[in-house]
Structures are given as structure tokens and as C-alpha cells.
């Protein structure tokens, strides 16, 4: 088999929230509201982010564990229907290496006073193309972080 390949994959996450679709939508649309929940794990510290919530607008978000690789999220909004639907594409970089590109759809449906959220991500994982770089940058960072956490004084 050739090493020139891309892995495609789709996954779905469904959640229900005790808040109206308008409130859930606002948590995606308003940068301050979004910053409250769209962030890395607590140990990552503050992310650096920028967003322009309109069709064709971009969003970037960078963060990472201290000493580890920088995780970058770069999105472009493809379609927005207020309180109902948000479609965006995003790519993920570890340091300078682009690892995956995804098409993401968020659908909001009213559900007995709350909101049902359906998240669908269709991704293309560019592993094979980035293999040497990924090994050097991404995984080394991961392993370094692991190694740091195993330090005797830790």
C-alpha cells in the first residue's frame, strides 16, 4: 500500500441542554460567551483566540500544555442559520504541522423547553502525508509532556 493516503472519518455527538436554542446558539455566536466554554483543558492555561462569526468569517484558537506542542484550531464559517444551524470547516495544526481538516455541522432543535444539539464532524486525517513531521513535532511534544509528568520531583 502506498503511504500517500488520507483517512476519512465521521462521528456524531448528541447532547441535550436545559436552555433555549437561542441561548445555545448565542454560546457559539458571541465571542465572550464562547470563550467561557470553548477552551482547552484547565492545565493548558488561557487560549489565544479570535473570531468573526459570519459566513466566510474566520476563527482561530491556539493553546497547549506548557512545554508541549501548540494546538491550533483555524475555522471558516460556511453556513449560519440563527438558532438552528452552524456549519464550519476547521483545520488542526500541532505546531506548524497540519494534521486534519474537518467539516462540522451543529444542528439545534427545540426539545421540551430545552435544546437538542447534534454535532457531526466529517474529517480528513492527513497523517500519512505528514508522517515524518508529525513524528518529529507532534509526538515528540506529546512524549516530552509525558516524560515531564514522570519526572521524579513531580
Amino acid at each position: 500500500m502506498s503511504n500517500r493516503s488520507v483517512t476519512h472519518s465521521t462521528f456524531v455527538i448528541e447532547r441535550r441542554f436545559d436552555a433555549s436554542p437561542a441561548r445555545v446558539f448565542n454560546a457559539f455566536a458571541d465571542p465572550q460567551a464562547k470563550a467561557r466554554w470553548f477552551s482547552g483543558p484547565p492545565e493548558w492555561g488561557p487560549d489565544i483566540s479570535e473570531m468573526d462569526f459570519r459566513v466566510g468569517g474566520r476563527e482561530t484558537n491556539r493553546g497547549g500544555a506548557p512545554g508541549g506542542p501548540v494546538h491550533s484550531f483555524d475555522a471558516t464559517y460556511q453556513d449560519i442559520v440563527p438558532n438552528e444551524r452552524i456549519v464550519f470547516t476547521y483545520d488542526m495544526h500541532l505546531d506548524d504541522v497540519r494534521i486534519s481538516v474537518s467539516l462540522t455541522t451543529i444542528e439545534l432543535t427545540p426539545d421540551a423547553g430545552g435544546t437538542r444539539l447534534k454535532f457531526t464532524e466529517q474529517g480528513a486525517f492527513l497523517d500519512a502525508f505528514d508522517k515524518p513531521a508529525l513524528r518529529e513535532e507532534g509526538t515528540k511534544g506529546l512524549l516530552d509532556a509525558l516524560e515531564a509528568s514522570l519526572k521524579p520531583d513531580h
Binding site: R4, V6, T76, Q78, D79, V87, T89, D91, R98, V101, S102, L103, T105, Q122, G123, A124, L126, F129
Partner: peptide, 27 residues
């Protein structure tokens, strides 16, 4: 265009629309 590797790979993302609005978004 999201990614181009000459002679190997092209990755694009975008939408298709008609006069009534968006029909699809694709990667």
C-alpha cells in the same frame, strides 16, 4: 484550498448554493 501537495494531494472546503441559498457544504 486548504492543502496542496504537487502531484499528490488537493484538499478544498466550500459551499454550493443556488438562488435560494446554500445547498451543501463539503470537504
Amino acid at each position: 484550498y486548504l492543502r496542496i501537495i504537487p502531484d499528490s494531494l488537493i484538499v478544498m472546503a466550500g459551499t454550493m448554493s443556488d438562488e435560494t441559498g446554500p445547498m451543501s457544504a463539503s470537504l
